[in-house]
């Protein structure tokens, strides 16, 4: 590949890529900017917005007025909780399917995936009624279980594709070397699987954090995560652009950072290993 491309082409590509990248990113940039403005400045024309003063006022106000910390904490508990729960169930399952495949393993995997294809509205009514009757509406525990279940197939699949890449011969070697199932998992499998488990965890936290069907349907206040809290700005009173921006910036910042770390795994996780 030691070929020189013309410098003209390179400059055109550079300018085009940066322009398009900037335009796509712009809405996010814009809410970050607005979050540091006063409400009065936030609704001005773009140029005036840029030249107006900066303030942290909106961040303080979001916290004071709306108990932002609670919703943030709910998002953390729900996404991390459901992810850990899913991992506890999925790691043994994926391990078994990857290393002790049977005749029906493939069918089993496909079936698990098919549960992910069921649209949420198909079970909205019974889930809502079940939650109501069990007193689980607006509870973190109930929602954690639902988020665990809807992401379980993806977690199993991702782990499966990672485990599949660990050569079976290595585990057989360990068995020949006298490793018990316990030491096989402890000394061989876990160290080799940790990167895969970590990226699975990362992607699943992102998906759970941004989940906006069940979180909107099954919570109102006490267990409401950020998706629901932000949705409450859809019918606000008075000026709210700066506050919405501040709330949104805080809601997406942690996930943007996690997401940038998991770019590569993202492709694989979201395509069930079909594209690597």
């Amino acid at each position: 590949m030691a070929r020189k491309s013309s410098s003209l082409k390179t400059s055109v590509v550079t300018v085009a890529a940066w322009t398009i990248g900037f335009l796509i990113f712009f809405p996010i940039l814009w809410i970050i900017i607005l979050s540091f403005k006063t409400e009065g400045d936030a609704i001005k024309a773009p140029l005036e917005v840029l030249t107006s003063g900066w303030t942290l006022h909106s961040y303080a106000e979001v916290q004071e007025r709306s108990n932002y910390a609670l919703h943030f904490w709910n998002s953390v508990v729900l996404s991390v909780g459901s992810t850990l729960l899913a991992l506890v169930i999925a790691v043994p399952a994926a391990w078994a399917m990857a290393f002790v495949p049977g005749k029906r393993t493939k069918d089993l995997l496909m079936w698990m995936l098919s549960t992910k294809m069921m649209p949420a509205v198909g079970v909205l009514v019974p889930m809502y009624l079940l939650f109501r009757d069990l007193g689980l509406l607006d509870s973190r525990a109930g929602l954690t279980v639902v988020l665990t279940l809807i992401n379980l197939p993806i977690v199993i699949w991702m782990l499966y594709t990672y485990f599949k890449e660990i050569p079976g011969e290595i585990l057989e070697a360990a068995r020949m070397d006298g490793a018990t199932l316990r030491s096989e998992i402890l000394y061989i499998l876990t160290p080799m699987a940790v990167p895969g488990i970590a990226s699975t965890m990362l992607l699943n936290i992102i998906l759970a954090w941004n989940e906006a069907f069940w979180t909107l349907q099954l919570t109102t206040k006490a267990a409401a995560p950020l998706t629901q809290f932000i949705a409450s700005y859809s019918s606000p009173e008075g000026l709210f652009y700066a506050k919405l921006s501040a709330a949104s910036t805080m809601a997406i910042a942690p996930i943007l950072i996690l997401g940038w770390f998991s770019q590569k795994q993202l492709v694989r996780g979201l395509t069930f290993g079909a594209v690597k």
């Binding site: 011969e169 070697a173 360990a174 061989i188």
Partner: peptide, 12 residues
């Protein structure tokens, strides 16, 4: 004791 085709060394 077995020596495997892929050597099956523990990479970590």
């Amino acid at each position: 004791a077995m020596v495997f085709q892929s050597y099956a060394l523990y990479p970590h």
